[in-house]
Computed example of a mutant assay.
Amino acid sequence: MASSKHLKSRTRQDYPFMLEYRTRWSDNDMYDHMNNSVYNYLFDSVINSYLIEHCGLHPPTSAQHPLMAHTHCDYFSAMSYPRVAELCLRVNKLSKSSVVYEVALFEKHVEQVKAVGEFVHVFVDRATQRPNANGMNDQLRTGLEKLLVDESRSKL
């Protein structure tokens, strides 16, 4: 993952997919900002929304499904209800059976990124809970390739 300083300079244009989320009263914690656990919930939601809509994933029945292997988040500034979040998604690395996602959370109508997270999924067979010898299926891979960002180009 890139340095915090580099991540803090991310813009919406660095991400090929975006999903809006209207914050809820229950997202706030006693400090009157969105609770840290909600960020992970939102990151998981945008990733799974993309997988369902663009990669053919059907969570209850798909032969392959993602298992979380790693998660990380850098927080830059707070957000709270009743704001609208814009969740932006990209793929930084795509391997045979795994994918490294980067998710940025922006507040609608605010330029600066609020948080950037990293999620790593390993795709496993439903029956064995192990990666398939042939890797992820073609439909998953093709959908994820559309989000793949060449990090060397994005630093220019």
Rank of each mutant, 00 (worst) to 15 (best):
P59C: 06
Y31P: 03
D29E: 11
V100P: 00
L42D: 06
Y50H: 03
L7G: 00
N137M: 13
A127Q: 12
S98T: 08
A85Y: 13
N132G: 06
A78V: 11
L105F: 14
R83G: 07
H72L: 14
Y41H: 07
K96S: 07
V122M: 12
D29T: 05
M34R: 02
T128S: 15
H121T: 06
N92G: 15
K96M: 11
A115I: 12
E20I: 02
S77K: 14
Q112D: 11
L147G: 00
P59W: 02
C88H: 12
E102M: 03
Q112E: 11
N36H: 12
S26T: 11
Y15C: 05
G117K: 12
T71H: 14
K8G: 04
Q139H: 06
R90Q: 07
C88I: 13
R141H: 13
A63V: 12
C55N: 03
F106P: 12
V124P: 08
N132P: 02
E86V: 15
D74R: 07
R130C: 11
L147N: 02
F17L: 03
S98C: 01
S62N: 04
V116F: 12
E145Y: 06
A63N: 09
N134V: 05
S26G: 09
A78M: 13
Y15S: 04
L67W: 10
F43H: 03
R22T: 08
F119E: 02
C73Y: 08
N92F: 12
L42S: 10
D27I: 13
D138R: 07
T61P: 02
V122P: 08
L57S: 00
K8F: 14
N40Y: 15
M68D: 09
N28L: 13
L144Y: 04
L7W: 02
A127P: 01
Y50L: 05
V124L: 12
I52G: 00
M30L: 14
R83T: 08
P59Y: 05
Y50M: 01
Y50R: 00
A127E: 12
R12S: 10
K146G: 02
V116Y: 10
H58V: 10
L7M: 14
K108D: 03
E102H: 04
T23P: 04
A104F: 10
N48E: 05
L94E: 03
L140F: 15
F17K: 00
S97Y: 11
Y39H: 14
D125L: 15
N137E: 13
A104T: 07
P66G: 13
T11S: 14
F119D: 00
F119A: 05
M136Y: 08
D27S: 10
Q13R: 12
V38N: 01
P66C: 10
Y31S: 07
G56Y: 03
N137C: 15
S49F: 10
A63I: 14
L51T: 01
L57T: 00
M79F: 14
K114A: 15
